[in-house]
Write a protein that binds this DNA or RNA. Structure first.
Lengths: 239, 239
DNA sequence: ACCTGAACACCGTTCAAGT
DNA sequence: ACCTGAACACCGTTCAAGT
């Protein structure tokens, strides 16, 4: 339905791996032939919509058909289904970070933080694949980690401003805020079909927990900025 | 590793479907032959441990091998992989409900609710399949719905006591409490490998949101007790 | 350089043959 | 009544053949 697109094709470096693979590893936007660029865009659009509707286990065949391309073409653009998921997931994170950056100069810090969180949860709640990707191996991908770090930095700016204004307790970080987006989404997920706006309730409840009025000492320190990177190593050695 | 078991085989009715299938649909514990009962137990133990370690996409072949039985035997006991997941998931829910029932007569209502939530999140945080099951189609299974309803009722008892004692805000229900368990778990999940106890931080943060001190009006009503049942119908017609 | 569908490997599920 | 592994269908991935 929605013609919303994932990515703009400007970061195709990380995914494909073939003998004559034209894609580069840096952020230089490798020039694609016109038909390839068109197919890539159609693929990302189809995948984005299909994953949102059906979750991460939607089949590649369905996505390829929806995009009007052959199955093989999917794997020319993305070495693996996982890489395709990563590209879309990163795009969502980037978009939210962009919004956060805009909001970081808004006049009311508490309202800005609230708006940021609201959009973040809304984005996740309408996408069946988002929570799956956030929990699964997807988060260990380098590109996802990079996008996550940037998102956490933007969130930290928003959080610091709200904290300085006294709207938010002192012991909460931007990383906390980002992680709590998934929390609100997950709480509402089991009843999403009958109460699609329920996430607003749990976001509000969680936001009340961020306020200074009810603050009790937290039993565990906030995750560090590099902990997500360590996470990948830990997962690798554990698997 | 752990010899923890899922279920006690006393509710085998819902899953299997074969020509000479001996299992009944009610709660009468169909008498299994000694070898069948033994295999069933081994299967549940192996599946419980494997799903916890590797998540829901662990292969049936691995589980069967771990249990020391043939692949075919798995499907004699559970018509589908999903049914196996359901059996284990229900058992987790039941165990938590049991704990809640015990805690409902504890002297300190707020401490009892906190203890209930702590054990609930702890259980989920150490099980890679739990969040997946809570988000996926698993929750639409009738047996899961029944277990969820019972869990919500127990939680409501605990919540009502804490509410009456003035420890918890008036607009929060037992259903909310149950859904927020998944929230705390999900928030911590992305960093679980490097900070396995991080969920304590988010549970504490969420619990602070339940206190009356920071309460602001909630923008959405609590889910109703029957909403989970409606959920299954909605999901069915939508798919 | 890029596209494609046939071919391969893997996994959930079925079933005929065993005890 | 129950167990088992070979057989089937499906899906992610590869690759030789096309333009």
């Amino acid at each position: 339905m929605a013609s919303t697109a994932a990515g703009d094709g400007s970061r195709p470096g990380v995914e494909g791996r073939r003998p004559h693979d034209p894609r580069v590893v840096g952020d230089a936007p490798a020039r694609l032939r016109a038909d390839a660029a068109h197919n890539r865009r159609a693929l990302l659009d189809a995948a984005s919509a299909t994953f949102a509707e059906e979750g991460m286990d939607a089949s590649i065949a369905r996505i390829a058909a929806r995009a009007g391309i052959g199955k093989g073409t999917v794997f020319r653009h993305f070495a693996t289904k996982q890489h395709l998921v990563v590209a879309i997931f990163c795009d969502r994170l980037d978009r939210l970070a962009d919004l956060g950056a805009e909001l970081s100069t808004a006049p009311d810090p508490a309202a800005a933080l609230s708006e940021f969180m609201t959009v973040g949860v809304e984005q996740q709640a309408s996408d069946r694949s988002f929570c799956q990707a956030a929990t699964g191996d997807t988060r260990n991908d380098p590109a996802v980690r990079a996008a996550s770090v940037r998102l956490a930095e933007v969130a930290e700016t928003l959080t610091a401003r709200a904290r300085d204004a006294g709207s938010i307790r002192a012991d909460v970080t931007g990383q906390d805020v980002v992680l709590l987006l998934g929390a609100a989404c997950q709480a509402a997920a089991p009843v999403a079909a009958t109460a699609p706006e329920l996430w607003r309730r749990y976001l509000a409840l969680i936001f009340d927990g961020l306020r200074p009025q009810a603050a009790h000492p937290l039993p565990h320190p906030a995750p560090t900025r590099t902990q997500l990177a360590d996470e990948a190593a830990a997962a690798g050695s554990a698997g």
